[in-house]
Design a protein around this nucleic acid. Structure first.
Length: 313
DNA sequence: AGAGCAACTGCTTCGGACAG
DNA sequence: CTGTCCGAAGCAGTTGCTCT
């Protein structure tokens, strides 16, 4: 969603959210402006509706993975119509499957809470924090956070970090702290006297503890073994088993982003990752044995180690 | 209920003062 | 000298009101 709603004004985000909401609720692809206004507690002039609808109607949904020679772009809407207070819109057929994905993240949590936000920046930041479930802090460069808020071209903010804080970041944090369960603050990261980034720190009221170095090392060690034995796994003869092994490897590989410094995930999240990694690892070795492939000595040791841990508990 | 106009509010930008 | 802070001015967006 963050990518989809990038650079939209608050009203535009609300309009998009309400379109998704209406579709989700009763499959309706039309809604009355009055209902929309009521939901977000605002007045919406037709001229603004026109501008916002025009912007929304040009939205695109993209998936880009150039490393694998892959990209796709789809329009979100085929069109949007407005007539005497009634919006009618038609989703692009290729986008419809994605609406379902958006539902969980966007509709159930965000709309009730986010409808209270007065600033689009609050919406954006809230979305960003929600997307980083399992993290408890996240360092982000000034450039990146400006891009997140869609203000990377504002001269004032580029040259005057104080203004950026006052009118963008602080506004968003204040609203989130006031209206949601999250508690957000940040530390400034400086290089000399220049602010080069922020370390966003947040919690949902519950006490959170950072993942330990030991936990991260544990994830790292599984990553290393899997990587070393990669060829064993992808050379499995049986097509189905090979595809399954590749999928399991990918899942483990994706954990690499959490192992870097500084440690940003919670203890709880690290526990989940370790469990998941061990499970995948065992499953992969099972596939090797099933296909009469040798399991490396390191892997055998690792599996024994986990068996031993479980026997004790 | 929706459209349109006028007064007002607050944001952005610019340039200059100030501090390390 | 470089980067941050601050005030003035212009202007876009908001509010409140009336008319259709």
């Amino acid at each position: 969603m963050s990518k989809l709603s990038h650079g939209l004004s608050l009203n535009q985000m609300q309009l998009l959210a309400y379109a998704i909401y209406s579709t989700q609720k009763d499959g309706n692809t039309a809604f009355r402006k009055a209902d929309f206004e009521k939901k977000f507690d605002l007045e919406y002039k037709t001229e603004h509706a026109r501008q916002d609808a025009q912007k929304i109607s040009q939205l695109q949904f993209s998936i880009i993975d150039l490393e694998n020679d892959y990209f796709e772009f789809w329009n979100v809407f085929n069109g949007i119509k407005y007539e005497h207070g009634k919006f009618t819109f038609r989703w692009s057929t290729d986008f419809i499957p994605h609406i379902l994905e958006l539902k969980e993240k966007f509709i159930t949590t965000d709309l009730t809470i986010a409808s209270q936000f007065n600033s689009s920046f609050s919406w954006t930041l809230y979305d960003y924090l929600q997307a980083h479930y399992g993290y408890w802090h996240k360092p982000i460069s000034k450039e990146a956070i400006m891009r997140l808020f869609g203000v990377e071209n504002k001269k004032t903010y580029k040259e005057n970090t104080g203004r950026f804080k006052k009118t963008v970041l602080d506004v968003a944090i204040k609203e989130i702290n006031a209206l949601t369960d999250l508690e957000v603050r940040y530390n400034e990261e400086r290089e000399g006297r220049t602010i080069i980034g922020f370390d966003l720190i947040w919690s949902n009221g519950k006490k959170v503890t950072s993942a330990t170095k030991k936990q991260i090392k544990e994830i790292q060690s599984i990553l290393d073994i899997v990587f070393e034995d990669m060829f064993q796994y992808i050379n499995i003869n049986d097509e189905d088993d090979r595809q399954r092994a590749i999928k399991l490897i990918r899942e483990i590989e994706n954990m690499r982003e959490f192992t870097g410094e500084p440690i940003c995930i919670t203890k709880e999240k690290a526990d989940d990752l370790i469990k998941k990694a061990v499970w995948n690892f065992r499953e992969m070795n099972r596939l090797l044995e099933k296909n009469n492939r040798p399991v490396s000595e390191k892997s055998v040791k690792k599996v024994k180690f986990y068996n031993w841990l479980e026997d004790r508990s």
